[in-house]
Nucleic acid binder design. Structure first.
Lengths: 339, 339
DNA sequence: GCTGAGTGCTGAATGGATTTAGCATTCATC
DNA sequence: GATGAATGCTAAATCCATTCAGCACTCAGC
């Protein structure tokens, strides 16, 4: 049961060589003058014994742990969060790295503790992820620790990975326009505070900027803009319900996320309107619920996994700098009237 | 920028003591005879320098890394997965541990690699999580590595954490019965294969066992049992749609998970029936969608986070053995007709 | 046969914390 | 004032892999 771990010394002994030699051979050092025979003996011995280097010992010497810290404000709750993590895990696995996960709940104290805990374990770099993309301060880290911001930006020069919200916003408008919608388009979820500064989220500001730019380019205007702070189904329901109650019947709804669209479906159904025959809907995120809805919701997807993977790749890249945008795929389902 | 890490030797030097003394003091060794003055000096020095022990160095010596491996078949996709992780993170943080995360996608090769990668980093223990609770083989690990199964069971003696499905199943039935339902109850999602062996999931078998036991205890029988393999909204919709089309109108629906219930809502609404006035619905999981639905879906929750936390606690406990059941909270919303 | 270069390998130091054995003191006791 | 015990601390070994300096040997060349 209590199998002792095989050490490099064990391998060296079995190969009849010094552990220096064994180390060099196993690490594939280029400039070494060790004989082919020595290589064979060491490799065979390592294989026979099932040798695995002790990462703690190695990282004590060289300054690499093959470990990446991933600090997130939220881990559960949204599919977005776990998608980022999943992508990061995949990329890390690819590069034979491993991920140390920490959650802060947005609390600066927990964040500081998380950073300390990760640094104690000598992570090679840290990915900072936020669920609502914000401007963050990059904490000062010891020299060689690289940082990548995931779904966040910062003033200080840094690397960040973001969804390409501007193009995403344009895509949403194009979807409606190309389907022939010119009048009666309602925007759901717009928010003045958000649009003006970075308080809540940079991505939202960019999403809206893209939407407005594309509307203008196509000479379109919104029939109405329904502002709301919290993007949950209840609010989508209430907004559309009120709209319909006062007699305003949209021909198309541009919702800023899927839960809002979800609520919109409910209100429309209750009032006897049908999607997409009476009202087309397009939104953002590609939440699980987008596929649950009947008819399926056409939406501009947040590319979680790709973003997570990208962040890790950039972290390991070494030469990466600046802002990296990841395309937002258009997921076409059946919520836009065709023709 | 390139700030050198403060080492124990630095602290000792500043305190005018040997690093042995500093080590003992900082670790709070009990039998030490070091003076109060020495304690003060070391503690002050450590605080002033912001000393943090190098975990790699420590774990080389003692065989603890304060790190827990968390291996899961799935990380994203379901809220369940991320809930387990969130709970585990919280418990780990509490115990000043950190979590190394790995995903296998259910692939034995990736699982083996993940285990190796974690063992290389000397994790103190491993939590094996599966999303669909199954019987798994506990891989043989070096002596001192503890393992806890999360949402999984095994033949071999082991520790596992599971939701208390049997009581959960009983609770669902009780909810309906206590609301006065005696006739016209339909079971949605029952599946013969599942119920007979452990192929798919132990928890489902137990959930059903609880349901059947409570039905029997109360002298109730199902009006109909609708079997289905894949518990997604589309199937819930199709099943209920077919039922209504053939003229069978249930008074209450017992759905085996929330997505099925979601589909049921859709079919009922389309056919002009109202929840809960015409049909009551109760289900399992407490997915996000349960609160999105109108009226809110009453459901028996999977206690993700508590399970995740429990797993880590048991891993660290040392004396824990056997199977640990976590209560499934009843989340009452508005899908059961009261009266 | 001596020198210098090249070849194949090893010894010992290193990284940072823990831990055991044990060295100086001081104090109490007879 | 000699002895034994208690007190307060330190030196050195240890965990394991990496890495630099350098040893011992062979071979070519003159």
């Amino acid at each position: 049961m209590t199998t002792k771990r095989v050490t490099l010394a064990d391998v060296a002994r079995r190969a009849g060589l010094s552990s220096s030699a064994a180390s060099m051979i196993l690490n594939g050092r280029p400039d070494t003058r060790l004989s082919q025979d020595a290589h064979d003996r060491v490799n065979r011995a390592a294989a026979e014994l099932g040798y695995r280097p002790n990462v703690a010992a190695r990282s004590l010497r060289v300054d690499k742990t093959q470990t990446i810290g991933f600090i997130s404000d939220t881990v559960a709750t949204t599919r977005f969060a776990s998608g980022l993590i999943k992508g990061a895990l995949a990329a890390a696995e690819q590069a034979e790295h491993v991920i140390l996960l920490a959650e802060t709940g947005g609390d600066p104290v927990r964040e500081a503790e998380a950073i300390a805990a990760l640094l104690d374990r000598q992570v090679d770099g840290i990915v900072f992820a936020t669920m609502r993309s914000r401007e963050v301060e990059v904490p000062t880290l010891p020299g060689n620790t690289r940082v990548v911001l995931l779904n966040a930006i910062s003033d200080s020069p840094s690397i960040s990975v973001l969804p390409d919200e501007e193009r995403g916003g344009r895509a949403a408008v194009s979807l409606l326009a190309d389907a022939g919608h010119r009048e009666g388009i309602v925007l759901l979820g717009h928010n003045e505070v958000t649009e003006r500064d970075l308080f809540r989220s940079t991505t939202v500001a960019r999403r809206l900027a893209g939407i407005r730019a594309e509307m203008q380019d196509r000479g379109l205007t919104f029939m109405s803009e329904q502002s709301v702070w919290d993007w949950v189904p209840n609010n989508g329901y209430a907004l559309v319900d009120a709209l319909l109650a006062e007699g305003t019947v949209p021909r198309a709804l541009l919702c800023l996320n899927d839960p809002l669209a979800f609520g919109a479906y409910q209100a429309l159904t209750e009032h006897g309107y049908r999607v997409p025959d009476d009202v087309s809907i397009v939104s953002f995120d590609n939440d699980e619920i987008a596929s649950y809805l009947r008819p399926g919701l056409t939406t501009i997807a947040l590319p979680h996994e790709e973003m997570g993977a990208r962040a890790v790749e950039l972290l390991l890249d070494g030469s990466a700098r600046g802002e990296h945008l990841v395309q937002m795929p258009v997921v076409v389902r059946d919520s836009i009237r065709q023709g």
